[in-house]
């Protein structure tokens, strides 16, 4: 039963991944991305890391995919035909993708990430991960929060500048 579910989820993730790169409309790509995230979150659950899977759903689907929706707003309207992607770009993407795959595959095979045996589920619990983030991995954790802070400040500055550039009056205008 578990094997069947595992295989199904793998197929779902791969199908989603193919949809995410192969389809022409940006929104269809986005749906494929969501599907891939759902599938791989399911795989993570089966591997015993429930909390990690939930965080993946919450952040990638609830956050990143939804943020990408804003990009869809700026995509080509449905009535117009999309242009074909230029071969140079496709080649570049394939090159980067397969390069990443080779590096990760090499690392996995070389034993830097050893194959996980049967382990205690508590290793992946919220408590355990939280403690690790505030003790052993405190520095990377803080570095990431610094990065996020910089990103937030940057977006505020970008938003403010574009507002100042507008000739429209910003005060006394009803609504947005």
């Amino acid at each position: 039963m578990v094997d069947l579910a595992f295989g199904f989820l793998i197929v779902v993730s791969l199908a989603g991944a193919v949809m995410a790169v192969a389809l022409k409309k940006v929104f269809h790509n986005l749906i494929g991305f969501g599907l891939a995230i759902l599938g791989s979150a399911g795989v993570t659950v089966i591997l015993g890391a429930e909390f990690v899977a939930l965080m993946q759903l919450l952040i990638f689907l609830g956050g990143i995919a939804i943020a990408m929706v804003f990009a869809v707003m700026m995509s080509t309207p449905r009535e117009q035909d999309e242009e074909d992607r230029s071969p140079g770009r496709v080649l570049g993407a394939v090159g980067i993708g397969s390069g990443f795959m080779v590096v990760v595959g090499f690392l996995m095979l070389s034993g830097v990430f050893p194959a996980a045996g049967p382990q205690d589920d508590a290793l992946f619990s919220a408590q355990h991960l939280g403690l690790l983030l505030l003790s052993d991995y405190a520095l990377p954790f803080e570095a990431i929060s610094l990065l996020l802070l910089a990103a937030i400040l940057g977006s505020v500055i970008v938003a403010r500048r574009s507002r100042e550039d507008d000739d429209l009056p910003t005060e006394g205008v009803e609504g947005v």
């Binding site: 969501g34 429930e50 449905r78």
Partner: peptide, 28 residues
């Protein structure tokens, strides 16, 4: 009975939001 049930509820909320937006976008 899921260990992090509360988070799962919120995570699925994001999925349904995708459904709403799919309906909105595809309606043209």
């Amino acid at each position: 009975d899921v260990e992090s049930g509360l988070l799962l509820v919120f995570a699925f909320g994001g999925v349904s939001l995708m459904g709403i937006f799919m309906g909105a976008w595809s309606s043209n």
